[in-house]
Amino acid sequence: MDKKTEIAKRDDQNIEKTRELYEVPPAVDIYENEDEILLYADMPGVAKDEISVNIDNGRLSLSGVRKLETSGAASWEEFGNVEFVRNFSVPQTIDVEKVKAELKNGVLALHMPKSEEAKPRQIEIKST
């Protein structure tokens, strides 16, 4: 076995990987009422076009990339460019067509309405 070639091969595979952004889970708040599930996620510094929200088969994935230009020499840096990534399981009863997302001051608000069948229904008791 030629060890040299094997090492070289792995190196080639790793070139892209070492360049990837840090993945950070954003802090979230999740609320629910009879009509919808409401999710807030802190994503400071992420522009609107850099956010993607995917709901597929009961799986919600959030992703937001922070790309900030820097100038000058850094005296200290506590945050950098990262990718905010987090996945959740959501009930199948979410009406995917009506999901609304807003981004304000670096906070993503996601309104996920429940489909009509999943809402609780008031049953009227008939007296006979």
Binding site: A74, S75, G106
Partner: peptide, 22 residues
């Protein structure tokens, strides 16, 4: 980590960035 900040320095000034989501 809340209110994390970066400080960048150039000849005539500083630029500071702080995370203040929401």
């Amino acid at each position: 980590g809340f209110l994390r900040g970066n400080l960048y320095q150039s000849g005539d000034g500083f630029e500071m960035r702080l995370e203040v989501p929401g």
